[in-house]
Design a protein around this nucleic acid. Structure first.
Lengths: 226, 226
DNA sequence: TAAAAAATCACCCAAACGGGGTATTCTGCG
DNA sequence: CGCAGAATACCCCGTTTGGGTGATTTTTTA
């Protein structure tokens, strides 16, 4: 572990909400190990400023709001990482939707905090991300874990045609079969009677020309369903 | 947000290291909102105890050491989740290797903390996991994000490496399972008794942390066996 | 060579499965 | 409007599975 070598850690903030931004800057100033070097209220002005800043005043960590007017925080992070791959980004948001989390990760953000995170936590996160970690608010981490458990769901194409002429209901049930659930468990998940589930599965088998769960799972995965 | 309704949050600890375990129990006792209801120094004794505990004394959150003699924390979590799906598990470890993190996620652990985490953080994590979040130490979260960014690397072995420590015989049988064969059919194909095939499959399940053919097939295909 | 790991076979039992029916809504589409 | 196709729910029955337990033999390896 490397402790702070009394060097100031340079931090930037990109946040359109006035009160929130000012308050954040204010609070961060109580931490002598941090130095706020660049504050912007839009992605545009941030990107512009950072490009003409002299090297000595470049931030090492950026607190980036996701919801910004104009260029979003995600797009801004993407562009930032093009020119400054070494700068670490912590996304700041009030939302926890999968899509934005997933995009943020792919665009290179390493931290993900909810806006109601306590200031001490924020400061810790800044230090942690600077040491190579990825601070993530627990409620968001939950969704990240789901992505790991079920990656396909997040790579799924917007409009994929349904193979084997499976009806939407059947497709849904097939997903559960792929996940190794029993008929009873599926029934509970989709609020149907186990017999209905069974009927669906029988029809699925007919359409897919299989006669066991294992074969159906193989077929489904090979055809990129699930 | 729901705050504590002055109800005790019941916590269990599974940890073989004497000093660490005792210290942890000691420290947790300073938090009146928590109640340590079950402490074990091995997965075996933990699983045994929890099964004969009366419902009132069942833990809601378990702090599980990964590195345990005998049954590992991962295997223990897997078994625990079978019988008590509602119990949340926080893995506790000194290691940060991908394989164990990945397996922990897949067996259903929702939290992942390094052993050097401060006690206040541990307590926060316990509360957060109880509220549906997934507290993860930043250095581990880093690896989880990598899994999201590059899922293939964790679902596909680089080249011909046998995942899950499956023996050659087991691997062969797994192939047949993936092909949707019944135990009897497999037995005929490999010239073994159906009981032997069954035993192999049971062992395969244990190693892969699954409990049905469908789940095994999914796992196998994900890891490019077959 | 002695201990450990893998492979083999066997039985019991409860739960789940697969395949064959039947029948009543519901719903989209011509 | 009417009707085909979907979705829903249920039953019977024999087979298969999953889990637990126990045992012997072969192979590997320390």
């Amino acid at each position: 572990m490397d402790s702070d070598q009394s060097k100031l850690l340079k931090v930037s903030i990109v946040e359109d909400h006035d009160i929130f931004r000012k308050r954040l800057v204010e609070l961060l100033q109580f931490y002598p190990e941090l130095e706020v070097v660049l504050v912007a209220e839009s992605a545009e002005s941030f990107l512009q400023k950072i490009k003409r800043n002299d090297l000595e005043q470049q931030p090492e960590v950026v607190l980036m709001d996701i919801e910004l007017p104009g260029i979003s925080g995600i797009e801004a992070t993407f562009q930032l990482k093009q020119d400054f791959p070494g700068v670490e980004v912590i996304m700041f948001t009030v939302f926890e939707d999968d899509e934005r989390i997933f995009e943020s990760i792919n665009v290179g953000a390493s931290g993900y905090l909810l806006k109601d995170t306590a200031i001490e936590e924020v400061v810790n996160s800044i230090k942690e991300i600077h040491n190579g970690g990825s601070p993530i608010s627990p409620s968001i981490a939950k969704k990240v874990l789901d992505m790991v458990k079920n990656p396909e769901a997040f790579h799924a194409a917007p409009q994929q045609e349904i193979p084997f002429d499976l009806s939407p209901a059947e497709l849904k049930i097939l997903q559960h079969v792929v996940d190794g659930k029993t008929n009873k468990q599926i029934a509970e998940d989709v609020f149907l009677s186990p017999w209905t589930v069974k009927t669906h599965i029988k029809n699925i088998y007919k359409k897919m020309h299989v006669n066991s769960r294992a074969a159906a799972v193989k077929m489904a995965l090979r055809r990129n369903l699930a």
